[in-house]
Measured scan of single mutants.
Amino acid sequence: RTAFSSEQLARLKREFNENRYLTERRRQQLSSELGLNEAQIKIWFQNKRA
C-alpha cells in the first residue's frame, strides 16, 4: 500500500477534479513530477472513481 504525501494527494485530487481519466502521456508526466510510478497513479484514479 502506498503512503502518499499531502503534496502528492493535493496534486492528484486537483488533477482528478480537472479530468477523471488520465491519458497515458499525462500519467507519465504526473509519475515523473510526483516521484510515483505509473501504476500507483493509475490505481489511485481507479479507486477514486469507484
Score class of each variant (00 low, 15 high):
residue 1 R to G: 14
residue 1 R to K: 14
residue 2 T to E: 13
residue 2 T to W: 11
residue 3 A to Q: 13
residue 3 A to P: 13
residue 3 A to N: 12
residue 3 A to I: 12
residue 4 F to V: 05
residue 4 F to L: 12
residue 5 S to A: 03
residue 6 S to L: 10
residue 6 S to T: 11
residue 7 E to D: 09
residue 7 E to G: 05
residue 7 E to T: 09
residue 7 E to P: 04
residue 8 Q to N: 03
residue 9 L to M: 07
residue 10 A to T: 07
residue 10 A to E: 13
residue 10 A to Y: 06
residue 11 R to D: 02
residue 11 R to W: 05
residue 11 R to Y: 06
residue 11 R to F: 05
residue 11 R to K: 08
residue 11 R to M: 06
residue 12 L to M: 04
residue 12 L to S: 00
residue 13 K to I: 15
residue 13 K to T: 15
residue 13 K to R: 13
residue 14 R to H: 11
residue 15 E to V: 05
residue 15 E to N: 01
residue 16 F to G: 01
residue 16 F to W: 10
residue 17 N to P: 01
residue 17 N to F: 09
residue 17 N to G: 08
residue 18 E to T: 08
residue 18 E to Q: 10
residue 19 N to C: 13
residue 19 N to K: 04
residue 19 N to D: 08
residue 20 R to G: 08
residue 20 R to D: 06
residue 20 R to P: 15
residue 20 R to A: 12
residue 22 L to K: 01
residue 22 L to T: 04
residue 22 L to E: 04
residue 22 L to P: 14
residue 22 L to W: 03
residue 22 L to A: 03
residue 23 T to L: 03
residue 23 T to P: 06
residue 23 T to D: 11
residue 24 E to L: 10
residue 24 E to A: 14
residue 25 R to W: 08
residue 25 R to A: 14
residue 25 R to H: 11
residue 26 R to L: 06
residue 26 R to Q: 10
residue 26 R to F: 04
residue 27 R to Q: 12
residue 28 Q to F: 07
residue 28 Q to S: 08
residue 29 Q to L: 10
residue 30 L to V: 02
residue 30 L to D: 00
residue 30 L to Q: 01
residue 30 L to Y: 01
residue 31 S to F: 03
residue 32 S to K: 15
residue 32 S to L: 15
residue 33 E to M: 05
residue 34 L to G: 00
residue 35 G to M: 06
residue 36 L to T: 03
residue 36 L to W: 02
residue 37 N to D: 15
residue 37 N to V: 06
residue 37 N to I: 05
residue 37 N to T: 15
residue 37 N to Q: 11
residue 38 E to D: 06
residue 38 E to K: 04
residue 39 A to P: 04
residue 39 A to H: 12
residue 39 A to M: 14
residue 39 A to E: 15
residue 39 A to K: 11
residue 39 A to I: 13
residue 40 Q to H: 08
residue 40 Q to S: 11
residue 40 Q to G: 03
residue 41 I to H: 00
residue 42 K to Q: 14
residue 42 K to S: 14
residue 44 W to G: 00
residue 44 W to I: 03
residue 44 W to E: 00
residue 46 Q to L: 09
residue 46 Q to M: 10
residue 47 N to I: 13
residue 48 K to A: 15
residue 48 K to I: 07
residue 48 K to M: 15
residue 48 K to H: 11
residue 48 K to D: 03
residue 49 R to M: 12
residue 49 R to S: 08
residue 49 R to A: 10
residue 50 A to E: 10
residue 50 A to V: 09
